[in-house]
Design a protein around this nucleic acid. Structure first.
Lengths: 225, 225, 225, 225
DNA sequence: GTGGTCTAGACCACA
DNA sequence: GTGGTCTAGACCACG
């Protein structure tokens, strides 16, 4: 009914979308967003509103804004947000568990339907993401291609709603992704295999294990930090 | 001061919530909502705003407002919304498929985690829902207890996010539920069994089959209508 | 040259002007400012800009904003600003001394020129202020008529620049005025006498003593607080 | 980031400051300002902005900009500004009176507090200014050391606010100073004497007379011009 | 051509 | 008719 008006205010909503781009590594530290005018148009929003969104991210320490030509909104090294996130997680891990429970649901379903419905083109895209992750160097690239694979699976599921949710969840995940597991590439490869074999149960099963591994990894990280 | 002021779509939001109450059978045809003043207070909203929400539902044919003593907002027989829904589904079933893909994801996860984490109290509640569905008479009761069971499972999963999503999906489902399958009670019972046995894979598997059956049923309904 | 553009941003400048109205008691605690639209027009500024000014005052604890008819920006009991002011003064009284040095200059000159140039109407106004102060009840009235007298003297000086400065200084004074000396009325009366007698030296002399008394009073207040 | 961004009148502000330097004789006719880059840095402003300020002064006839080596912004003989000023004063002397009323206030207070608070170093500086005025040759030197003395007194008052105001007023005075009275040196000397004697009333009294003499001188000048 | 500020005006939610 | 939010567009200061 009101599918795209979930009730947040515009600035907060746009801030969330931009934050997602940072969390997923789409715009890495040091990277620059488009100009305010372009962004405003992209979000179908006035520049004033967009600027409020940028201000939120600025105060959260995600971006810093520079003026002049070659100015713009640049992603910081993310030190401040990382610290804030760790503190919050250390004091209460429940929200993260909640997020992962939901992630398990949407990504298992995505993997299942992907195994049933994937086209050859879907397979090409998923394979490419997997290979790029394998050869990625640097945290930013790892982060980006890890996120990209999960999106590709959701795309292959043919469900726009699942795709949106996969993206939304990913957008909330943030820095955990900074600490990718060494065997992520293998996980992705295994999942992809099951999808190619058109084995929905196996695909979703492996997706679940993959996500639960990540959850465990995160839990450890928070405990030791 | 303006901490929760979303700016501009409160009426639509409230309308959606009230619509959900109708879709899930919480307030059945012929049933009456609380007085405007109570509703307004419940949603932390002014009476004027609430009246706009009611107006939306009125125009959609969900409710009719009667004045005087014993007046109030009464749920109609839902003929108009049903017709509108059928027409829409007949012309494009994709949104419904999208919704069901997502439903499969969240409810499978809910069943899985419920099987892992359910407490004795959770079991009591789920069992009660199942039994009430078995002995329910009339469409309204069926609809209500069917919805209630799915909520109970989501509650047992211990994930507030999954619970919210289960409810949200249900709120969008509407009348399909009018046409419950005869073997729904058996499905619920089977799912509950797997949850009680602490068998996550089986519980989620049965939940999926249950939902896919409903999807098929609906698809047929639309074709023949 | 650029007499009215001293370089502040508009919101800060407007906030300062509104703050002055509070400090001088023109709008007392509990009082209400005009509607945003009127204020915006009065300051020849857009509503958005004016709202930023209101936000500043809101965060400083000077006003609270209520919605609905009979809503608007209302002056608080000023507890928060008072506390903040006391703390600041206790840690560094120098800015207050600086302000008073300047005040001595402008108000002595105002008294001097008033004694030279006052018209009969000026005298009427100054006398009225003095009398009202004598019969005033309540802090708000005292504050208001005290401020009013000093303005009247500055008006009588015939120098718009001095008048502006007297007002500006008064606007920065704030709560000190909350603690009026018992013999303020006598001081005002003495100053007025010298002005009526067209005695510039005596008028400015008395004005100085009046202000220095206030300074001393304030100094004590801060020490004991 | 935008801590000191006043938004929109930087050029005018900078122009005013540079104009003051000319009015006070700090940079005399024929004199050269620093390079654009140095000035820009000094005012913490971009070169483009500074150039706008220079353009303003250029159009007012205060400076002329020469290019090439030994180029820069040179103060003109000030014929054009002087003519403009005379015309303006002849048509309306009120603004000048207003300025002098204010000047009386701030400089009397400065003299008063200087007499109360001057240190030995202050005396040295004030004496030096007085002596240099006595031995000055040429309008430029006269203008410069006259202005300098008044600043020294304001410095000795220990009030930064009074000092700022004395400077600001002086910046607006401009060419009147071109026509210094012969007995200015004696006036300064008398004022200094009262300050050294720690006689606040006398110091401020003499300061007033000094300023009022200047006002009269100016008035005559305008009448005859 | 960038971000920073302000304007003018609309519509919404409120009581 | 109030305050709360957003839009569209302008101009300024920047490097």
């Amino acid at each position: 009914m009101n599918s795209d008006a979930r009730g947040q205010q515009m600035p907060a909503r746009i801030a969330a979308e931009l934050r997602t781009l940072i969390h997923t590594g789409t715009v890495p530290p040091g990277g620059r967003f488009q100009g305010e005018r372009e962004l405003a148009q992209e979000f179908s929003v006035s520049r004033a509103t967009l600027r409020q969104a940028l201000k939120v991210l600025q105060e959260e320490g995600y971006i810093e804004v520079r003026r002049g030509p070659y100015g713009g909104a640049f992603v910081t090294s993310l030190g401040a947000p990382l610290t804030a996130w760790k503190e919050q997680m250390a004091s209460d891990f429940a929200p993260m568990d909640d997020l992962f429970d939901f992630r398990v649901g949407v990504e298992m379903a995505a993997a299942r339907f992907a195994a049933e419905r994937r086209t050859d083109e879907d397979i090409v895209r998923m394979r490419e993401s997997t290979e790029r992750l394998a050869t990625a160097v640097g945290r930013e690239q790892l982060r980006l291609h890890d996120a990209r694979f999960h999106e590709c699976v959701a795309e292959a599921s043919g469900s726009s709603r699942l795709l949106n949710m996969v993206r939304e969840v990913r957008g909330e995940l943030f820095l955990p992704v900074d600490f990718l597991r060494d065997d992520d590439t293998q996980d992705h490869s295994d999942i992809l295999g099951a999808i190619i074999d058109s084995n929905p149960d196996l695909a979703s099963q492996r997706m679940m294990e993959h996500i639960e591994h990540t959850r465990e990894q995160l839990r450890k990280l928070v405990r030791t930090a």
